[in-house]
């Protein structure tokens, strides 16, 4: 018998002597658990965004500065930020049709640090803006720290920056 055969025989004997773990109960448990969990699994998680109807447009002259809400107007030409009647900033499109959400978020955070009403934000949307962009704008507002976001329709002349 060659040396290799000898080694193989020793290995086979050692393997035969190894105690084997009985995995059958574990497999049974898996076979029950996995179909149950697959049937209960939720792969697409949904969430909700609370939307408030604007109690006031935030534009009336009688309001005190403390009550004035920051308004983001979303239009085909970009974003424009206003506090009451005062236009604060405009954010043009990133390229042909992409709205610049990163700059909007930064600008909103900067404005929030200055203004007194730090919770309320009104998103005024022009006709022709798709719902996906509305949600992305509301997300930018939430990231900037605004907790109460209202949705309104932008007047035709308000959207243009």
């Amino acid at each position: 018998m060659s040396f290799i055969d000898d080694v193989r025989e020793k290995q086979a004997r050692a393997k035969a002597d190894e105690p084997e773990v009985n995995l059958t109960p574990v497999m049974n448990m898996f076979l029950i658990l996995i179909p149950f969990l697959v049937s209960m699994a939720v792969f697409a998680h949904v969430a909700v965004i609370e939307v408030n109807l604007p109690s006031d447009a935030g534009m009336s002259k009688g309001q005190s500065r403390k009550e004035l809400k920051l308004t983001v107007a979303v239009s085909q030409t970009g974003f424009s930020l206003a506090l009451g009647d005062t236009l604060l900033d405009t954010i043009p499109l990133l390229d042909k049709s992409a709205l610049n959400y990163t700059v909007l978020q930064q600008t909103l955070a900067e404005q929030r640090a200055i203004i007194e009403n730090k919770n309320d934000l009104t998103v005024a949307v022009s006709d022709g803006i798709i719902f996906d962009k509305v949600v992305a704008t509301m997300d930018a507002g939430r990231f900037a720290g605004f907790s109460k976001i209202s949705l309104s329709s932008a007047p035709a002349q308000q959207g243009a920056p």
Binding site: L37, M40, A41, V42, F43, A44, H45, V46, A47, V48, I49, E50, F131, D132, V135, A136, M138, D139, R142, F143
Partner: peptide, 24 residues
């Protein structure tokens, strides 16, 4: 991925919902 309370709402098959960072 198991959710103990299950899925209260099933999105409709006829539409595509937008993606958001909302957690509520």
């Amino acid at each position: 991925s198991f959710s103990a309370e299950g899925n209260i709402m099933t999105p409709s098959q006829d539409l595509v919902l937008p993606l958001s960072n909302a957690k509520d």
